[in-house]
Simulated assay, not measured.
Amino acid sequence: MNFIQAKEIALKELTEISNYLGEKCIFFKTYEVKDKGWVFSYNTEEYLLKQNYSHALAGNHPMFVTLDGKLKYINLEEYDKLFENTWTKVIVE
């Protein structure tokens, strides 16, 4: 599994979320976590690009795609634990 494959998995999920909400969602922060996978944070395009707070998602958890291609949502405790004792790299596209 590489970043491009992981992003495809996350994008498929993001498309489903966008379709369900009836509003386009986009990634705003992506991290590679060494030897574990990739974290994708997202929100609505309207909120992220125009700061329209009435379109902000509340309580959404980041997506995590593991090295073996499994997608799961991680809460704050899991998020903190994921980054313990390892390096991360912010991915800018």
Rank of each mutant, 00 (worst) to 15 (best):
93 E>N: 15
20 Y>H: 15
26 I>A: 10
50 K>T: 04
45 E>Q: 15
10 A>W: 04
78 E>C: 02
63 M>N: 00
60 N>H: 08
28 F>I: 03
77 E>R: 12
66 T>E: 07
18 S>W: 14
27 F>T: 08
40 F>V: 03
15 T>Y: 13
41 S>N: 14
15 T>H: 13
21 L>K: 13
72 K>C: 02
42 Y>P: 01
59 G>E: 08
75 N>D: 15
3 F>H: 13
89 K>I: 07
26 I>Y: 02
9 I>Q: 11
65 V>E: 02
1 M>L: 13
83 F>W: 04
30 T>Y: 02
73 Y>D: 00
64 F>W: 02
74 I>M: 03
27 F>E: 12
31 Y>I: 10
17 I>C: 04
37 G>H: 06
39 V>W: 02
92 V>I: 15
73 Y>R: 06
43 N>D: 11
22 G>P: 07
79 Y>T: 02
39 V>N: 04
77 E>F: 05
90 V>Q: 12
90 V>N: 12
35 D>A: 12
16 E>Q: 09
80 D>G: 03
25 C>W: 06
60 N>A: 05
7 K>Y: 11
41 S>P: 01
84 E>I: 09
29 K>P: 00
80 D>K: 12
50 K>L: 09
68 D>T: 05
25 C>N: 13
37 G>D: 08
73 Y>L: 09
36 K>L: 14
74 I>Y: 01
68 D>W: 01
46 E>S: 09
71 L>F: 06
47 Y>P: 00
27 F>K: 14
12 K>P: 00
10 A>P: 02
55 H>M: 09
14 L>N: 10
43 N>I: 00
93 E>L: 14
38 W>K: 10
21 L>N: 09
49 L>D: 05
34 K>P: 01
86 T>I: 13
59 G>P: 02
27 F>I: 11
73 Y>I: 01
6 A>F: 06
8 E>Y: 10
33 V>P: 08
66 T>W: 04
